[in-house]
Simulated scan of single mutants.
Amino acid sequence: MYYMDKLPTVISCCFCCFLRAGTVMIAIFSFIVGLIFVPNVSYAKGFWDMNSILSNYSSATESNIQLFLGILSIMLCAVSVLLLIGACCNLPILIEIYQWGAVVYCLGVMLLFFILAAFCFFIHTNCYLAGGALCALIICDILLTAYFVMVANSLRMSLKFLNDEGII
């Protein structure tokens, strides 16, 4: 039932700060990343606009990808706030909600960026650089999410252990 309990744990975040401080930094970083893509929900020009990279050949698909990316980003902002509250108030359930939300966000972004990269490589043959950048972003997203989930899980497991022992 608890798949997150089987993840590897770390004793500090980035080898230099405590788990709670690292988890708070992860929550703030995740919230900022979510904010970067949120303006695309309303089809307004945000920090990232795909119109200059991709042509209007498949604008319906590209617009839907922008919409889904915006929705995923709003979800990431929401679970980042839950992570911040969970880390500051010793609530392991909120940390676990963040973990699952981060995994869903990562999988969603990975799928959307893969679709865009496929468009860049196979449909719009003049934007190989953009497709390569999207593939690099997919790899970075997977690595960062895996590390963030492991750090958050380590704090959650330590809080859970301290709760079971009656220390908190």
Rank of each mutant, 00 (worst) to 15 (best):
F121L: 13
L137W: 05
L107I: 14
L19G: 02
G108A: 00
W48R: 12
L111N: 10
A130D: 07
M150I: 11
L91I: 07
V81T: 11
G101Q: 07
L35G: 08
S63G: 08
I95P: 01
I93G: 01
C14H: 09
C13H: 14
L144F: 06
L111C: 05
R20W: 08
G108R: 01
V10Q: 10
I93R: 12
I32H: 01
I36M: 06
I95Q: 12
G34L: 06
I115F: 07
I53R: 06
F161C: 13
C88L: 10
S58R: 12
M110V: 13
L112T: 08
I11H: 11
L107W: 02
L94N: 05
R20H: 08
E62P: 07
E62S: 09
N51K: 14
L35D: 00
Y98N: 07
S59W: 06
C13I: 13
C106Y: 04
K160D: 07
Q99S: 11
I167K: 05
C135S: 11
P92T: 03
Y147I: 01
D5N: 13
L54D: 01
L162F: 12
C140W: 02
M50N: 13
G70M: 05
F37R: 03
V41F: 02
A60D: 05
E96L: 02
D164G: 08
K6W: 08
V81D: 07
S12H: 15
A130G: 09
D49E: 12
I85R: 03
C13R: 03
C13M: 11
V151F: 00
L137V: 10
G131I: 04
M75I: 09
I26T: 06
L143V: 14
K6T: 07
M110I: 14
L19P: 00
A146F: 15
I28F: 08
V38A: 04
M110C: 11
I138N: 04
Y147N: 01
Y147E: 00
S30Q: 04
T145S: 15
R20V: 09
I32L: 12
Y2N: 09
C120Q: 11
S30L: 02
D49Y: 14
N153M: 01
G86V: 09
A133L: 13
C16R: 09
D141K: 09
A78I: 07
A60G: 03
C127D: 10
C140R: 03
C17K: 04
T145D: 02
I139W: 07
I93V: 12
S12F: 11
A117H: 01
S63K: 15
A87C: 02
L91D: 03
K6L: 15
V149E: 00
L19D: 03
Q66V: 14
I95S: 01
S58F: 11
V149I: 14
S30P: 00
N163S: 10
A152E: 02
